[in-house]
Design a protein around this nucleic acid. Structure first.
Lengths: 228, 228
DNA sequence: ACCTGAACACCGTTCAAGT
DNA sequence: ACCTGAACACCGTTCAAGT
C-alpha cells in the first residue's frame, strides 16, 4: 500500500480563528455546505482536525462565524447613509447579492436565528424604520416582516442552489426543471402554480425580490417622509 | 460481552412508504432533526436499515415527504372557505401552529423550496390573492412576500427550538437568554436591538406573527373588497 | 417483490501525547 | 499555549444474499 504523500506545505503563520473562518468560507463557496468538514478544513490549513478545536467550539459555531463574517462585511459596504428607505433597499439588495455569491449563507443565517449575524441585519433595519418615524408599537412588526422576508427568500434561494448543485444543474436548467414540474401538476388542484410556471423560466429573481421589499416599504406610514 | 436483546417485536403489517413517513414524524417530534436516523427508524419499524431504501430514495426525500404530510393535513383542515383574506390568515396561522407542533418542519420546508410542500402553500395563497382581484402583474409579488415571510418566521422558530433543545432550555429561559444577550450588546452600535430586548421576555410570537400578516394584507389593493 | 444486515466510506469530536 | 493524529462513536447508503 502506497503511503499518500502529504502534498500540502506547512503553514507559515500560526493558526487563528480568523484564518480558520477564511478557509471555511473558501471551502463553502467551492463545494457547498457538505464541503465543509473538519478533515477538508484541516488539510487546507495544513494541520490536524484537533487543532481547529483549540480555536472554535464546534461545527455549528464555525458556520455561524463564517456567516457573520459575510454579513458584517456586507453591512459595512452597503450602509453608507442616504434616506432610510434607500438604506433599507441597499441593505436588502446587499443581503441578496451576498447570499447569491455565497449560496450557503441563506440556510446558515436561518439556523443562526437570534445570534449575531441576524442581529446585525435586524439592527440596521430597525434604525432605519425608527428614522422613518414609524410609531413605536409598529416598529417591531415592520422590522420583523422585512427581516423574515429577506431570510425567507435567502433560505429558499440557498436551498435551490444546493439542489442544483447536487443534481448537477446550472441555473437555467434548474428553473426549467421547476417549471416543468409545476406544469405537470393537476390542472384543477393547482391552477395558480401552473399559471406562474411558464414565467419561472426567464424571470429575474432579483427584480422580484426587490418588488417585494418595495411592497412592504410602501405600506409604511411614517410621520416623516421617506423619500427613495 | 452480552448480546443486546432485540426488544422490539416483529411488525405485523408489511412496510410501506406511509408507515415509514408516520414513524419518521414521530421520531422527529420526539427528538428533533438529529433524532431521525435510518438506524433509529428501522429499529422502530422492526426491520433493517436497508429495507427503508426499498420505499424511499434517501434521507432528503424522506424529510420532504414527512414535511409534506404535515402541510397537506394542515391545508385540508384550515382552508374551508370564507373570505380570501380570512382564508389567508387561517392558512398562515395553520402553518404557524403546525410548525410549532412539529418544530423540525420550519427548516425542512425551506430546504424543500419549490417542491410539493411549498407549492401547496403557494397555491393556496395564490388562489386567494387572485380572488381578491389583485392585478395580474402584482399577484406574484404579494404571494411571494406572504410565502417568504411565513417560511422565514417558521425557519427561525425552528432554529430557536433546535437551539433550546440542544442547550436543554425551556421556552421562557430561552427567551430570557436571548434578551440577556441582546442587552449586553454595545450601546452605541445596537440601540434598536437593545431597545427591543426587554420586550422579548414576554412577547407573544403568535400575535407578532399575525400582525405581520395583517400588515402585508393591509397593503393589498384589490378591485374587490377583501373583508375580514 | 420485498426484506436482511453486514460492510463501506465517511462524519464530528475527544484526548493523550507532544512541542 | 498550542498543535498532532489516532481513536471513538456514530452516520447515510449499498448490495449480495435470502424469502
Amino acid at each position: 500500500m502506497v503511503k499518500k504523500a502529504r502534498s500540502s506545505q506547512r503553514r507559515e503563520d500560526s493558526l487563528s480563528r480568523d484564518r480558520i473562518i477564511e478557509a471555511s468560507i473558501e471551502l463553502l463557496d467551492e463545494s457547498g455546505e457538505d464541503g465543509l468538514t473538519f478533515r477538508a478544513l484541516s488539510e487546507r490549513l495544513a494541520t490536524g482536525p484537533g487543532a481547529i478545536y483549540w480555536h472554535i467550539a464546534n461545527k455549528s459555531d464555525l458556520l455561524v462565524a463564517a456567516c457573520d463574517a459575510i454579513v458584517a462585511r456586507m453591512v459595512d459596504e452597503h450602509v453608507v447613509g442616504g434616506s432610510p428607505k434607500a438604506t433599507i433597499r441597499a441593505l436588502a439588495l446587499g443581503m441578496f447579492d451576498a447570499m447569491e455569491a455565497h449560496a450557503w449563507v441563506g440556510t446558515a443565517l436561518i439556523r443562526a436565528a437570534g445570534q449575531l449575524p441576524t442581529v446585525r441585519v435586524l439592527e440596521c433595519i430597525g434604525q432605519q424604520v425608527r428614522a422613518l418615524g414609524v410609531a413605536a408599537d409598529t416598529q417591531w412588526t415592520i422590522v420583523s416582516v422585512l427581516l423574515n422576508y429577506i431570510l425567507g427568500v435567502g433560505g429558499q434561494n440557498a436551498a435551490n442552489a444546493q439542489f442544483a448543485r447536487t443534481h448537477g444543474l446550472d441555473r437555467s436548467s434548474f428553473l426549467d426543471a421547476v417549471a416543468t414540474d409545476w406544469s405537470a401538476l393537476d390542472a384543477s388542484d393547482y391552477p395558480f402554480a401552473r399559471s406562474v410556471a411558464g414565467a419561472m423560466r426567464d424571470h429575474d429573481d432579483r427584480v422580484d425580490y426587490l418588488a417585494g421589499i418595495d411592497l412592504i416599504l410602501a405600506g409604511i406610514k411614517g410621520t416623516r417622509t421617506g423619500r427613495t
